[in-house]
Amino acid sequence: MIFIKNLIFFILVITFTIDAFFFFGIILIFIRIFSSQRVAQKVLRFLIVCYGRIIIYGFARILVKVEFIDSSQGRHAHDPCVYVSNHRSASDAFLMGVLPGEFVQIVNLWPFKLPILGLCARLAGYLSVRSMPFDDFSKECKKLFSNNISIVGFPEGTRSSSSQMGQFHGTLFRVAKENQLKIVPLCILGNEDKPLRGSLKIIPGSVEVHKLPAIGYKEYKDLSNFKFKQYIRKKMQIFIDQRTGAA
């Protein structure tokens, strides 16, 4: 039964992805003809979020119930911020579709090589920390923040094999500090077998995406760059441990 559900899910996703690519592509070409690149990118990012939500709240319901739990305590939705998430599954990038507002994902190099999705990521201006030196990356982020665009990334860099998060890379934290922005931690729970590591098989169950309270500049400004990332990591790990019963 799980195999059949997985099969149906992937047929729906592949069909939808190809259809959406052409349909959204036509919309974007028209928008680009009559407006600026900025408007076209904004629309594309919105369409990517719609695509993600249709998959996670629509097709994925055959197998998985996704719940977004916002505990951010009223962070203004239009302020740009830096979202940092734990990373356990290949589906995590899709789960970011639950987030409000306009954002750009910070990804590794390989997602750009994916058919269709890679092209969309490139056109939407997604950034790779591995493709440029820190100073250039920081300048790119600054441009995004000045347009009220948030960034979303996975500071572990690679998927962790247990609920214990890997060490954090400090790039996103340094960018947040330079721009005096809030850090918003995200903790994804229940995603480790959706799909299983090294496989496409999705085990039925539920996934929770928790948006933790934002950490403002005043709270972290006196911390060193190293201490800052460790501080956020510890907060996230405590939350994960509490929720998974590991505490």
Partner: peptide, 9 residues
């Protein structure tokens, strides 16, 4: 827990 940026420091 150091990363490449911390190594510079």
């Amino acid at each position: 827990g150091l990363d490449s940026l911390d190594v510079v420091d």
